[in-house]
C-alpha cells in the first residue's frame, strides 16, 4: 500500500516537471528555462533508488518527447543516461554537502545537454551550442531548492 503511494507521488512529481517544462510563459524565457525533468528524476534516483531507476526515467523521457514534439526517444535517451549516473553514484552523492552535489549535478546536466545537442544535430537543425549552456546554469542553481522541497515531500510520505 505504502509502496503504491510512493510510486504515485514520484509519478506525480515527474508529471509536474514535464508540465512545468512545457507551460507557456511570457516570451524571452525560452533560452533559460530550467531542466525540470532531469532535476526531479535525478533527485528520486538519489533518494529512492528502489522506486526510481533507469526505466522509469526512460518512460518519463518518452512522455517529455511527446509533449515537446522533439524527436521521439531523444530526451528518453539523455534522461536514462542521466538517471544511470545518479543511480550509479547515489550512495556517495547523497551524503555530499550541497555544494559538491551541485557540482556533480552540473557535470551530469552538461552530459545530458550534450546528448540532446548531439541528437538534435543528427536528426534536424541545431542552434549555437551556447543556447544549451544557459539552462545548465539555471538548473544547477535550482538544485538545492528542488532537493529540499522533494526531501520534505519524501520525509512526509516516507518514500524510501
Amino acid at each position: 500500500m505504502t509502496g503504491l503511494r510512493s510510486y504515485a507521488i514520484i509519478a506525480a512529481t515527474l508529471l509536474a516537471a514535464i508540465l512545468l517544462s512545457v507551460l507557456p510563459l511570457p516570451h524571452a524565457d525560452l533560452l533559460a528555462r530550467p531542466l525540470w525533468l532531469p532535476l526531479v528524476a535525478g533527485y528520486w534516483c538519489l533518494a529512492a533508488p528502489r522506486r526510481m531507476g533507469i526505466f522509469t526515467a526512460w518512460g518519463a523521457g518518452l512522455l517529455f518527447d511527446a509533449a515537446v514534439a522533439s524527436p521521439f526517444g531523444e530526451h528518453a535517451l539523455a534522461l536514462s543516461v542521466f538517471a544511470y549516473m545518479m543511480s550509479r553514484y547515489h550512495l556517495r552523492i547523497r551524503n555530499l554537502p550541497i555544494g559538491l552535489q551541485m557540482l556533480f549535478v552540473a557535470a551530469n546536466l552538461l552530459l545530458y545537454e550534450f546528448l540532446i545537442f548531439w541528437i538534435n544535430g543528427l536528426t534536424s537543425k541545431t542552434g549555437p551550442i551556447l543556447f544549451y549552456g544557459l539552462p545548465i546554469l539555471v538548473s544547477t542553481a535550482l538544485w538545492p531548492a528542488v532537493f529540499f522541497l522533494l526531501r520534505r515531500l519524501r520525509r512526509r510520505y516516507r518514500i524510501h
Binding site: 531507476g53 533507469i54 526505466f55 526515467a57 526512460w58 523521457g61 518518452l62 524527436p71 521521439f72 526517444g73 531523444e74 528518453a76 535517451l77 536514462s80 543516461v81 544511470y84 543511480s87 550509479r88 541528437i119 536528426t123
Partner: peptide, 21 residues
C-alpha cells in the same frame, strides 16, 4: 544490473529515434 538497464534504455531510444524518423 545498472549498466545492462542503461544499455537496454539506450538501445530502445535509438530504435525509437530511427523508427520515427
Amino acid at each position: 544490473f545498472l549498466a545492462l538497464r542503461l544499455a537496454c534504455a539506450v538501445t530502445g531510444s535509438v530504435a525509437l529515434l530511427v523508427l520515427s524518423r
